[in-house]
């Protein structure tokens, strides 16, 4: 027991920290399932972070702030999707472009509006509601994991469940997965793979918008490039989670935990924080190589 009131504050914090990873990764899962490598998650998240905090501060409403943030993020995602799918751009390059656009646009606008391109504090931002039930939070593990988080944490769990239902339990989800597995099969049925890919990109815009809002509304401030690679890590979480919504929850927790742990470890252990932060990347590379070795020997496939 300590002053925070949780048995395992490291775990409690990890659950909070993982939320943006989780949201971005769930959106990215949709695009991944349609066979697209969506590296624009990072940029979309940044757009969401910027616009939701600005609108929340100017309207004084968290709900409106997040709503506007999502709308604008989805609009950018739409541009990204249209260029990639209908102007036949290489999705990898247009993804890079989206990231670059996001980092440029947010700073340029911040400078225009606030005359400042450093940290922008929003003082009269409404506080995020959170769930506090003091006697439940004292239950070890359960309390750490489930109690005392802000509303976004619970929203993200809801989104994971909805995503899983959409992906596995609806015709839309089936066609979406079919598009990724074998677009020719989809075409042969007279359906258009591109439509499902665009829908997936818009969904990723939706979740990334929320993911960004989590970052800024939690902090009450906007910092240039506040996402700092979280979109990329979310991408990795998709693979590490084996392209499964619940696997992604676990992968996101691993990343959330390593960040939370490094916050804690910076004071408590001798392992340098950077090494701890590098750990998820290393684990993922090793897992990825292991996976392809396994697959190689299983299928004995020929690599030209």
């Amino acid at each position: 027991m300590n002053e925070s009131g949780y048995y395992f504050p490291v775990i409690h914090n990890a659950v909070g920290i993982m939320t943006p990873f989780l949201l971005a990764a769930i959106g990215g899962l949709f695009t991944e399932l349609t066979g697209m490598l969506n590296i624009a998650l990072e940029g979309l998240m940044l757009i969401g972070a910027f616009f939701s905090v600005i609108f929340a501060a100017s309207t004084g409403s968290l709900f409106l702030g997040v709503l506007f943030g999502i709308v604008i993020t989805m609009f950018i995602a739409l541009i990204f999707g249209l260029i990639s799918l209908y102007l036949k751009a290489d999705i990898f390059i247009s993804g890079l472009a989206t990231n670059l656009l996001a980092s440029g646009l947010t700073v340029v606008l911040a400078f225009k509006i606030f005359g400042n391109k450093g940290v922008i504090l929003f003082k009269n931002l409404p506080e995020l509601p959170s769930l506090n039930i003091p006697f439940l939070q004292k239950i070890p593990m359960f309390g750490d994991i489930f109690i005392g988080h802000n509303i976004f944490v619970y929203l993200s769990w809801l989104i994971v469940i909805i995503a899983a239902v959409v992906i596995y339990k609806t015709p839309f989800g089936m066609r979406l997965r079919g598009t990724g597995y074998n677009p020719r099969a989809i075409t042969a049925l007279g359906l258009k793979p591109r439509n499902y890919q665009l829908a997936a990109i818009l969904i990723s815009g939706f979740t990334c918008g929320i993911a960004g809002a989590v970052l800024t509304l939690n902090l009450g401030a906007f910092v240039p490039n506040i996402t700092s690679g979280r979109g990329w890590i979310a991408l990795v979480a998709i693979y590490l989670g084996n392209k499964n919504p619940f696997g992604i929850v676990i992968a996101s927790f691993v990343f959330g935990f390593s960040e939370s742990f490094s916050n804690y470890a910076q004071g408590a252990t001798k392992i340098p924080a950077d090494f701890i932060l590098a750990f998820p990347y290393i684990i993922t590379v090793v897992a990825m190589i292991g996976y392809s070795v396994w697959k190689y020997y299983k299928e004995n496939r020929k690599v030209f």
Partner: peptide
């Protein structure tokens, strides 16, 4: 950062095969 916006637009246009 206005540079980043120009660069991103160039990226977009350059890769648009269509």
């Amino acid at each position: 950062e206005i540079a980043a916006i120009v660069e991103s637009i160039i990226y977009f246009l350059i890769t648009a095969q269509a």
